[in-house]
Design a protein around this nucleic acid. Sequence first.
DNA 1: GAGTGGTCTAGACCACTTC
DNA 2: AAGTGGTCTAGACCACTCC
Lengths: 233, 233
Amino acid sequence: MQYLKIMEAINEQIDAGLLVAGNKLPAERKLAESFNTTRVTLRESLALLEAEGKLYREDRRGWFVSPQPLRYDPTYTTNFPEMARQQGRTARSELIQARLIPASRRAASLLKVPPLSEVYRIDRVRFLENRPVVVVTNFILPRFFPGLLERSFTHSLTTIYREEYGVLYSKTRYRVRTTSLLGDTAQHLRATAGSPAMLVERLNYDQHGNVIDCDLEYWRHDAISIESTATLD
Amino acid sequence: MQYLKIMEAINEQIDAGLLVAGNKLPAERKLAESFNTTRVTLRESLALLEAEGKLYREDRRGWFVSPQPLRYDPTYTTNFPEMARQQGRTARSELIQARLIPASRRAASLLKVPPLSEVYRIDRVRFLENRPVVVVTNFILPRFFPGLLERSFTHSLTTIYREEYGVLYSKTRYRVRTTSLLGDTAQHLRATAGSPAMLVERLNYDQHGNVIDCDLEYWRHDAISIESTATLD
DNA sequence: GAGTGGTCTAGACCACTTC
DNA sequence: AAGTGGTCTAGACCACTCC
């Protein structure tokens, strides 16, 4: 069980601060040599550290030490840059696309509309300290937001909802699962296909109890820690 | 990218119902041969399906198709067997140990007591349909539950709290992260060291607002889907 | 006892990043 | 142009499970 020993050795170097958050590790061949093993075995150790959220990979670019995860409370409406700012982080979003499309099967089932109904779809990538950490896809019911696509998306969606349409989030239903990154989602996050990820799905209601939109969030799983408080009955 | 194609092929067989939840896959060598590749590449595909939660591994026993995940709402106090029953699942718990010990660093920090304060520690494994899916460790403040260890643990902790000590859960603070299974935890779950996992930490308060206990739950990550509803302000 | 999964070796080629 | 990570091959041995 070499690979466990190598994992522990690298782990200790991280905890001791010899490997700093955000920094790149030496090349795999060099690491393999310094641990006196082959690349295959070394990569097993690295994959383990990736699973634990201590390291992450950028496709073809190498291995990096994971920064602290962002604490994410699904019961808050706070927009993303604001949430990041409260934790002393630097955040920004990039729009991938915003279009009117026939709802995907998953979106239709969440929004409880017939399959292929037209909905707005907005895709964005969000960055923490210039690292892409989450791809967010919103599916939005057009009847509550006529002309939404003509707006600019420089403000957060919640702000546009509130200020231009008088719509407030009042309730959210969320689900969290682990999955892996594939295709475009992986690419936007600079991840290798198959990297472990966290999927957060949310279904949002307005102040009148109507379902207004849902979102699918694919997170680099080391970048997020889901935290919340609940009052029980 | 053979391994993606193999992954898709196996995925389709699962979706088509050719591979049934809970069933074992053919031996790795046979699968490798039938996909005309080597074991190393095949195992990459299997690991990917494991990351997605479609397959799971039992250490040295082979690969199995994952059953539906249990929907887990951290804001409910419902005990585990009851929660499973409501979803038509068969559940049981096994006690690993129950002792009075000096609090670990993590437990002391969560419970906000000095390091090495004495606390009860109760470890249990929980099964769904005879598959071990989660190792739960409770750290309990003894001053609220004198003589707790003399009780039998045939009932759920929440029941003992309520009926024998008049203590009710009123608030819970929870945190969800991905991690990997190591050491004893892995063994209790029949998992290979390094298997992906979901860590749920909870800090529980009684009806007077006192912290009474905390728990660390290491889940086979394919066995759980965290779902909840929140009302926003 | 046969077969299986866990682990490891020692290479190779390619496409991409980086300089 | 050099170096790197992504992917793949073709083996091997051991400890364990299962019959």
